[in-house]
Design a protein around this nucleic acid. Sequence first.
DNA 1: AGATATTTGTTCGTATGTATT
DNA 2: TAATACATACGAACAAATATC
Lengths: 263, 263
Amino acid sequence: MKQPAIIRDKENSNAALKAGRNRNRAQKVSEVIKDWILELRLFPGDRLPQEPELIAKLGVSKGTLRESLKILETQGLIKTRTGPGGGAFISEMEKGLANSLLATHFFFKDVSISDIYELRIIMEPQLARNVCGYINETQIEILREKMTYYNYPPVSIVEEQSQREKELEFHEIMAGFCQNELLRFNCQFLVQLLKELIICKKIYQKPNPELREKGLTYQEQLLTAFTNKDSETAHLVLQAHMLEAKSLMLAQEAHFKRGFLKG
Amino acid sequence: MKQPAIIRDKENSNAALKAGRNRNRAQKVSEVIKDWILELRLFPGDRLPQEPELIAKLGVSKGTLRESLKILETQGLIKTRTGPGGGAFISEMEKGLANSLLATHFFFKDVSISDIYELRIIMEPQLARNVCGYINETQIEILREKMTYYNYPPVSIVEEQSQREKELEFHEIMAGFCQNELLRFNCQFLVQLLKELIICKKIYQKPNPELREKGLTYQEQLLTAFTNKDSETAHLVLQAHMLEAKSLMLAQEAHFKRGFLKG
DNA sequence: AGATATTTGTTCGTATGTATT
DNA sequence: TAATACATACGAACAAATATC
């Protein structure tokens, strides 16, 4: 594993740049710029020098520099704007991008519903327990409002699918309240995978009234637990919810490769 | 959320390309190519058309095409080779790249040891339970061999740190045996975060003999459980292990921003 | 081992688009 | 509206890498 070079002066960076003849220039340049970001302690909102200056300092052509910036942009580290005062700005990688990159990672892998629920069964209860500690009335109300989208039997297959999506969004929103970024990201990513599953593979075609009804009951119990600040009950309720959902879903088990690429 | 267009013919793709004047051309081109990959059912190893052909079919300049390919390369979806028979090849994103992209996501976020262990406490036991089902003697032997690096008291601070790393690698290897890609990736990513913590922030400077000794005991119990195919014991042992490790680590709690950028 | 053909990688000059003033 | 400052896009020429003979 490469040793992170937090401090490295410009001269050395450029030297390293010129030395490396064996590999891609654009990638090396992007790493040099990364070093600058660390070195100059740049934070989101700060601007990088403009193209001509970067070209001069790095000693590369416009095309190569643009490829390098594309790399950083793809990694979500910068964003570029045109016009006066424009240029490349440090930016915090947004959630959607990280999701889509990770989804690309699982693009050719074989992920099953069973795999997803193996994680959801342990993560969602923990999420509930965590969030319970500091969730407020306003946030509980947002969750309750989301439930109104599916607190009645669907009249069509289209509505059934829409309700499934809303039910997943309930979990997505709850995760959004979580202050542990790792836990939040994980839970939301799993929900995204399931959503893609709905859209792409068109499973859940058959009505599954039991799933909706039981889910609703669990979620009502969950909100009660939230109101009472009863984190252990919240944990248990969601554990039961997930176990139930898993067994109901496995009836329609389907492996899905590919298809959840685009973010 | 955008509707994934699994099937989309070339004409439509190009039409969509020409229509979009409001945004980045290179990015749109890269999405068109992604669509092609889906549409043509290309898999790792398959080759994309060569630059001149892509330029012709997409109606863009060479520079733009190269930026587009850079995007896909950064996302880990393709790799390019020069020379006869060269070109852009579909490739499976390697683990390291996914790790580094995700690490970039948490670059500006505040992740604490407590956050990491909140996840490890639930994931590692599940990992043990899962792996226990199919781990074989050879694999157990690999784990046992790794333990020899730290089954004795360290004589220096340097060795202490090295032992900590090896102990983390024990978990990394165990995760590598997991057949649930999601679970495997998560566990390994958490280990990577902890490793970066060792390197960058130099916590664990102070000797912590208790951590090593108790960890060793737990891991021995774990291997026994593996040998006996006793998944519930494996689960319980690792749960105790993680709880213990968390409390011992929190004594040295330190938040760490930045610094684990580069892959 | 060396020459050659093929294909990506890099550069530069120029032109166009776009947001600010 | 016009001028300005900047990114974005294009095309042709050249350099480097690699497989094949």
